[in-house]
């Protein structure tokens, strides 16, 4: 069971290595002559005149929170979707299992409707 994940683990390490090695290689073979002009932040030719980490639109937070809700919802639907056919094949409880998820979806949809109505999804 878990052995089948061994290649995945190795692949993760190789993947990270694939990121690290080219950077090291580039550092070794490419020139390395930093100067203060070169290392200053890019700002279309101007001097940077304030910190770049500024306030940003609150809607990004909203999107992030909505995403978490929806993604969690999808994560909850995964097991349901996997076994749903078994319930249909078994014949009994299929409607209950369907209904339970529909209630679950309905709660989310109502929240979604309210968000929409309140303008959380609008970008001007």
């Amino acid at each position: 069971m878990l052995e089948s994940y061994f290649p995945v683990l190795v692949f993760i390490l190789v993947g990270l290595g694939f990121g690290i090695v080219p950077i090291l290689l580039g550092r070794l073979v490419a020139p390395w002559r930093p100067d203060s002009e070169k290392l200053s932040p890019y700002e279309c030719g101007f001097e940077a005149f304030e910190d770049a980490r500024m306030k940003f639109d609150v809607r990004y937070y909203l999107i992030a929170i909505l995403f978490i809700l929806f993604d969690l919802e999808i994560a909850f639907l995964f097991p349901w979707a996997t076994v749903f056919q078994d319930f249909i094949a078994a014949g009994e409880h299929a409607w209950f299992v369907f209904g339970a998820v529909m209630v679950f979806l309905a709660v989310l949809v109502i929240g979604y409707i309210v968000e929409w109505k309140n303008g959380a999804l609008d970008w001007e």
Binding site: V107, I110, G111, I113, V114, K117
Partner: peptide
């Protein structure tokens, strides 16, 4: 609670 939420929106 859901009804109140909808009522609050609409």
């Amino acid at each position: 609670a859901l009804v109140i939420m909808l009522a609050g929106a609409f």
